[in-house]
Amino acid sequence: MEAFLDTFFNGAVLARYAPSILQGVWVTVLLSVLIVISGIAGGSALACLRAYRIRLLSVLIVIYADIFRALPPLVLILLVFFGLPNIGILLSSFTVLYLILTLVLAAFAEEIVWAGITAVPKGQWEASRSTGLGFTQTLIWVVLPQAVRIVIPPLTNRAIAITKMTALGMVIGVPDILGQATTAQSFSANASPLMLAAIAYVFLFLPLVIFSRWLETRFAAPGV
């Protein structure tokens, strides 16, 4: 038992590295918030563009969404982080991680929001257009408010899954929770920093996971 505590909850090690891991928490939180905001906004905007059914534009959006849903994010991160400097584009590891995960979340969000838009019955469009609302007005005032209800639970789940991927930043040296913890671990030769990191993630994400579970029951249509 003592050996266990010494390995995973070593007081001295924890005290020494807690501040840097706390800094990592801020990096993780900041990244997550930025990714969620820009990813969901971007994906929703693309889904709305797709609603106009402009052939070429829709095809491009689908190709983009498919590629970023089919490729492992880590492949994209390494590709951009190690590839771009070779053609003279230097981005910080933070920027690379932010960009890639935003693009990935936007791709998923686009598909989810598009599914929500198409799930709104045709009669809603017709009723609205018959009273003189234009296409864009109908989209904004009639269709999107209804799509939002359908879309919130899957979008929340996806947003959580992708913000958790900020941990991948450790591979390219982003000083997020995991990045700080692995550095600390290699200096301290002790597993306590990793334990602390795991606890930090649970502390951050468990409430969100429970929240998403609540959302699902809240938005589940009765009788379906």
Binding site: A3, F4, T7, F8, I160, K164, M165, T166, A167, L168, M170, I177, L178, T182, Q185, A189, N190, A191, L194, M195, A197, A198, Y201, V202, L204, F205, L206, L208, V209, I210, R213
Partner: peptide
């Protein structure tokens, strides 16, 4: 819920690099 909250990479590194200390 616990394992949906922990990023898979954290779990993997914990098992691979943390458990050896035990």
């Amino acid at each position: 819920d616990l394992f949906r909250a922990v990023p898979p990479l954290v779990l993997l590194i914990f098992i691979y690099a943390g458990l050896p200390f035990a």
